[in-house]
Amino acid sequence: MVHYIGVILDESRYEQIKGTPIEEKVQSIFGGALKMLVVEVPEDKSEQILKAFDRARIDSRGFIEDVPVAFRRAVFEEIVKNKSLDIIDKVLERLPEIQELAKKEDEYIPPPEIE
């Protein structure tokens, strides 16, 4: 069974993929209020992800959620670098590095500046 990782695109992320072949794969959700890329993850790979991060889970939509921010960032970085959504192997190669960054996230995530 295939699972998914959703990558939310804010303005700065959208700028990074604009004009690339990825742009046409952008999905618009919630009435156009959010843009998202969806990466497909084969079951054996999703098991690796669930094993690597103890709070990660598959939600009712079949998406892999509750993964560290560092993991999500790595997914987007690989999409930009490879101009493709077929990047899950590249992300998994970086697991040790991502796990190190994730440990720091257990203590601190910088809050956004909003009015």
Binding site: D10, R57, F63, E65, D66, P110, P111, P112
Partner: peptide, 13 residues
């Protein structure tokens, strides 16, 4: 999805 929203919040979106 609550966890989808948590992911968005954690990323500062």
């Amino acid at each position: 999805s609550g966890s989808f929203l948590r992911g968005m919040v954690a990323e500062g979106v």
